[in-house]
Structures are given as C-alpha cells and as structure tokens.
Amino acid sequence: MDLIRIENVTKRFAKHVALDDVSLSIPEGSIYGLLGPNGAGKTTLLRIINRIIAPDSGRVMFGGKEISADDVYRIGYMPEERGLYKKMKVGEQAIFFARLKGLSRKEATCRLKVWFEKFGIESWWDKNVSELSKGMAQKVQFIATVLHEPKLLIFDEPFSGFDPINANLLKGEILALRDKGATIIFSTHNMSSVEEVCDHITLINQSKNILSGNVDEIRHRHGANIFEIDYRGEEQDILKALAGRCEIMDSVPSPTGFNKIKLHIATDEEVRAVIAAANESVEMRSFREIIPSMNDIFIRAVNGNL
C-alpha cells in the first residue's frame, strides 16, 4: 500500500516552474530516495509534502486521504540546512520541538532521555547549542525529528556533514526506524547511500519526474547486458569457445593466470549457452552481470541518454 501518493502536482514561482506535473507513489514501509541535480525541485516537493507550501494544482494523498493539517503530527522533517536555536539549551530545545509536534512535556522528556542515552550524549542536555559542533548539532536535530515517532520521516540530505562513523550510526537508525514501520523519504546527491539504503527512488530533473521505481529493478532495467567472467586458463580457448555467441568487449590476460573477459550478450536466452561454452573451455571462477551504478544512471538520465 502507498503511504504517499503525489498526483500531478504542479508548482509555479514568479518566473519559473518548480514542479511540472509530478506524480509518484511512496510505498508504506519503504525508504524512498528523491534524487536530482541542484535546483531540480526536490526541496519544493518536500515542502509540499510537509504542507509548508501548497501546490498550484494536483494533490498529495496521505494514507489514502488528501493530506490535512493534522497529518503534520505524523510527519518528521529534517531540512537540509539544520535549524536549531543557538542560544537555547539542548534539552529544552528538543522538548520545544516535540511539543510543537503534539507531545506533552512529560512524554517528550521521557523519550528524549532514551534517545540521549542511545547516542551517548546525556551530558549535552544543559549545554547551549552554540557549544556543539556541526555534527553534534545534527544528532540533536535528528532526535528532534524522530522523537514523536512519525509514520513519515523526511530527511533532506541527511548524511551531509557527518563523519563516516556517525553517518553509519545514522544509517543504522534510519534502517531501524523503517523496520519499526516508518516510511522514509530522503533527498540526496550521495549515490552510494541510495544503493545501500533506498528501496525506491524518483529522479527529478528540470521540474519533471524522469525516472521512478525500485532501485534493483531500475539498475537491472538499465543494465546493458554486459557480463564479466573471471577464469583460469588459456585466453585463446575461451575466445574460440565464445566466438559467434556473443560480442567480446574486452579481454584482460593476467600474468598470474587469473584472467578477466568482458562480454555483451544480445539476449537473455543466450546467457546459459554462453556460460556452458565458457565452462567447457576454461576453469570459470565467476560470472556476473555488470549492473550500472546509480551514479551512472543518474548522470545518464540527467544528460538525457538513458
């Protein structure tokens, strides 16, 4: 079931169209990546989902109904530029944001204690935000975002500014939230994080949705039927065996005897025949499809050669 359905949303600002007839569906319990070059309209879309701004036309459905003001209690939003009051104590501040999301002061304090313990930051409670480093402040912001246990979490560039250790910690927390039933949208330029955590993506370019779907499915769909074989044996033997069955793109013999060959197989039906032939001629160690990285797909899609 889809938690969020965006139906033909269009948003114009004074001189340009920020979103042009964008539709997409976000399945419940998924981690959804929103990709796109700078200025493509990602933040506008996130703001529309957050009801910060209203679309000119089209609508946003939340859990099957048109999104309403009360739904903000079920959404947690962490904008790209982190926003905290610099001169306010960390604990008070987190309570303040939680109360704005409908938690009572008592409930917020209880939950915060648990999170602060989990992140090992209990000692920050009475510190001013201005005393924290950027990464530290982001941890606080993350907690403030998820504290009211929303059904939908929206992160704008969540990993920017985190060191690898904390980025991993955050990734772990995001996956854990998903496992507890939250649906997560995040916008990013970081393609490796998309491959690691996202189930689905939408690629927005120049205000339009140009590519949507399941990450694995997209990568396979845009695979170019290119395969690679690692083998031990004579190069001539495998070349002879494969001749006529497929197109050899590259062959790299190695003095150590572990050779690689890269091929293009025109149709899926021929894959088994190619494997059989190769297996006859040399000692095969591996056979795998070269799937394009999300990075490649992103660049090709934005440049219009997908």
Partner: peptide, 15 residues
C-alpha cells in the same frame, strides 16, 4: 536570526 539558522524551516513544518 531564525531565518538565517533555518529554525524557521523546521518550525514551519509543524506550525
């Protein structure tokens, strides 16, 4: 100040 340190954007999603 709130606008500069982007607190407003966090707040505006709930208020």
């Amino acid at each position: 100040e709130e606008k500069n340190n982007r607190v407003l954007e966090v707040m505006v999603s709930s208020v």
